[in-house]
């Protein structure tokens, strides 16, 4: 496909990045994985059903398999590779490891992005009173085949049990 592709410019995990020769029919997921060297977003269904390819597109979590690469031209894209910093794993990442929410881990990058979004919304007070039922609603678009989700909930409770998050009903199930 050489010579037929587009030039794609993204602000990727905070850095300006360019890929040339990206085939026009490529999804954002395909572009990230095959042209920007970021395979963290996963290719489990490529139909928008499983959430394993979730990335931030201009601050909103999206299924990157459903976004054409060209639609992301010039946009800010955040992937799982951008969650950790020099100080180490983010709170959300550490919570998933510690809680045992990672088994095969194929769904994990997608969950992490959605939970990161929840965390940001909780801090911004655009959501309050996150209890288990609401966490379940929020994560209903992400499939996991290994864990039965129980330890994912544990991880989310831990990740949201942040001093800056209203604590009253966090983790309450009854």
């Amino acid at each position: 496909m050489t010579g037929k592709g587009i030039r794609l410019e993204l602000t990727l995990n905070g850095k300006r990045q360019v890929a040339t020769d990206v085939p026009a029919n490529t999804s954002l997921l395909g572009a990230l994985r095959d042209h920007f060297g970021l395979p963290g977003a996963k290719n489990a269904c490529e139909q928008g059903e499983c959430g394993s390819c979730t990335v931030f597109l201009d601050g909103t979590p999206v299924c990157s398999c459903l976004v054409a690469a060209g639609q992301a031209q010039g946009a800010a894209v955040g992937t799982v590779e951008g969650l950790a910093d020099e100080d180490g794993l983010s709170l959300v990442q550490q919570a998933f490891v510690t809680a045992g929410a990672v088994q095969c881990g194929f769904c994990t990058p997608g969950f992490l992005m959605v939970v990161r979004d929840l965390q940001l919304r909780a801090r911004g007070r655009t959501i309050i009173n996150l209890d288990d039922d609401e966490v379940r609603e929020a994560l209903a678009g992400n499939l996991c085949r290994c864990t039965g989700y129980e330890k994912v909930i544990d991880a989310v409770r831990a990740a949201l049990a942040d001093p800056d998050v209203p604590r009253r009903s966090v983790g309450a199930s009854g």
């Binding site: 395979p39 799982v80 950790a84 194929f106």
Partner: peptide
């Protein structure tokens, strides 16, 4: 676990 939450773990499709 750390590799799996940072996106660095190399699955067969990667």
């Amino acid at each position: 676990g750390t590799l799996k939450v940072t996106g660095e773990f190399a699955y067969s499709s990667d």
